[in-house]
Design a protein around this nucleic acid. Structure first.
Lengths: 204, 204, 204, 204
DNA sequence: GATGAATGAGGTTTCATTCAT
DNA sequence: AATGAATGAAACCTCATTCAT
């Protein structure tokens, strides 16, 4: 929760600060990231920084919120809201697709999330104890697929929810290690789904 | 590479140092880990540390090598060497099983690998540019499965290799977040393989 | 000296500022006291503060003057003015009594004076080089007592003046450490004077 | 409690540090005193300071202990131990005399104690809640005087103990404001005691 | 006159690494 | 080879004061 001062800032300046922060946090793990560098790069005085934010962590948390918000905006929420009209596999495709699109268009942001994911101590401070949101999301989705009778009942929901989560990370990795793959978005997603679909769908 | 002095140390002392290092690196990201803490915990003088290692990173690299070595020792290498006698899915099962066993018996080590995986800067310094060993390994394995005619030819090797890698991370996560799953080892692995097998195997 | 702006302020606002200042200076030594805290508590903007006062010290000095003024108002000035009609010991009693009453009714203010008394650097800046007003006051009083023939001529004026001063501090301390003494005002004063009187009065 | 490192230092260096600390703390209230200044003046690196002391407060506490220790060494402990052989007033004289001697020979140290006495917050952190040691000491002494039948029974012990304490402060003040008094030590003490003795002694 | 953002010097503390014994 | 003290570059953060509206 940045201080009110921050939100009263002219949008342009606010943006400059956020950009600078992203640059720094994307290239350095939290404890290695320097407030000084951010202030400098944003063109503000050290003192001003602390007029906007409680401290380094405060800015970091804010950044995380922005990212989540941004990521959510990539999901075709129409589709999700009207679940009923779509098959489980269509929905899954949409989810992966949006994740992929987001990652592709915001490559700079990827490391930040990745780093946080691995600094458990920090992660807890920010999101509290509560468990992996991603896995939870997939479990709901799977549950839906089951209800629709699209999923092989022999499948273990818990295990697969976790696996699907792991796969999104793999997806991100493709982009991160960029250039090593010459397929276009749809293709990757479809190849992936082909595999998943076969793995999950009800056998007749 | 640690200095010769290190290897001349009585095994017991060497071990104490390694243990101390593991403790520290398992609980703190590289830059946050303190050499002082390691030396203290190992019961050696600060000065001695630098008689054994070039610097902090030197010790870290060494640690990584030890871990890889240890992990490899968990693989039923017999099976792998005599690939020919086994089906692709049997081999895959063996791979996951050994990975799982290692993780379960060395929970303390998991965070270290995880953290490294996400500090790309550090990762490169240690492993150079060369790409993900894990994915490479799976691609070889998949290739073998294809040759054996066990895998659906419509499957994209590159993509799936990456996915299989991602899944091993998910596996590790199960253990890390410990206690949240009430299945025993085999069961988890088998549920996972059931999904994978359906996804990959040749349709008739 | 506060700027004219300050004195043009509506009395109520002026008071709010003074109260806030007292609160801050009573709980923190001068250098530790924060202008920000005062402004905040008084409900004025940081910038306004500097429209009223030259700087932190300016406000502080002003505060001191107010306190002295307030303290003086506790003395039964009638009695002092008409010295001639009273015995030295009656006057002394009056002096201690008024000091005590002031302290008791303005406990909040005590620490401020105490702190200043011990920050010589600050003290000088405020009161200049000139010596302890309190001791001076007592010396005059003693002189009077001597003239009246009430005081043992063997007594050294300078020394005792200082001692009487020290005693007023002790008095203040009683109140500060509040509750540790179960006598009422008069009683304390009288017990104290009993001692002093015996110490000073002319032997026959 | 400075770190062991500090006590392992060559006496000379240790002393240089202590001297530097005294210089700084004698001229600035605790929060205003700068570690940098101390290190510089002592001729050690900033880092070294923190190898010797936990932090600024750690050094400060240590200093206080040294001072108390030093002050105690000024008391003619023989006399105190063999109370029985001396009259109350002789003992009192000894106490004031030693306090005076200490103050006179360690003028530099006086402000430190004074400042601490008025930073209640700090005082508590160092000496805990427990009440004024000085007053306690005098109460014991007075009790002794009473038992010996030397003190006017009408005297209130609590009140006078506090007053005697206040007087020691006055004494210190004489020295602090140095040069303003042209009597020699004994004389001051004796003049003071003359007053006190008359105040306290049993009337016949 | 009022506001509140902007500034930046300055302070404490941490820690990897070097040095001298 | 072992020790442990010495070093000093940063890093974060605070706050009195100035500035621009």
């Amino acid at each position: 929760m940045p201080k009110p001062t921050f939100f009263n800032l002219p949008a342009q300046k606010r943006e400059r600060i956020i950009e600078a922060a992203i640059d720094e946090f994307a290239t350095h793990p939290f404890h290695q990231a320097r407030v000084t560098a951010i202030a400098e790069q944003a063109g503000i005085a050290m003192g001003s920084f602390y007029q906007y934010f409680e401290d380094k962590k405060d800015l970091y948390k804010h950044l995380m919120e922005l990212l989540v918000e941004k990521k959510l905006s990539y999901i075709n929420s129409d589709m999700i809201k009207n679940k009923g009209k779509y098959s489980f596999f269509q929905l899954l495709r949409e989810v992966y697709l949006s994740g992929f699109r987001f990652a592709k268009e915001n490559q700079r942001l990827l490391p930040i999330g990745m780093m946080l994911a691995n600094d458990k101590e920090l992660y807890q401070e920010i999101y509290g104890e509560h468990e992996d949101r991603s896995a939870e999301f997939f479990r709901d989705l799977l549950e839906y697929g089951k209800e629709q009778g699209e999923i092989d009942p022999a499948i273990d929901m818990k295990v697969v929810a976790k696996l699907l989560t792991g796969m999104t990370f793999s997806l991100t990795d493709f982009i991160w290690e960029d250039g090593k793959l010459d397929l276009d978005d749809m293709e990757i997603i479809d190849k992936m789904l082909y595999f998943i679909e076969n793995g999950l769908k009800k056998k007749e």
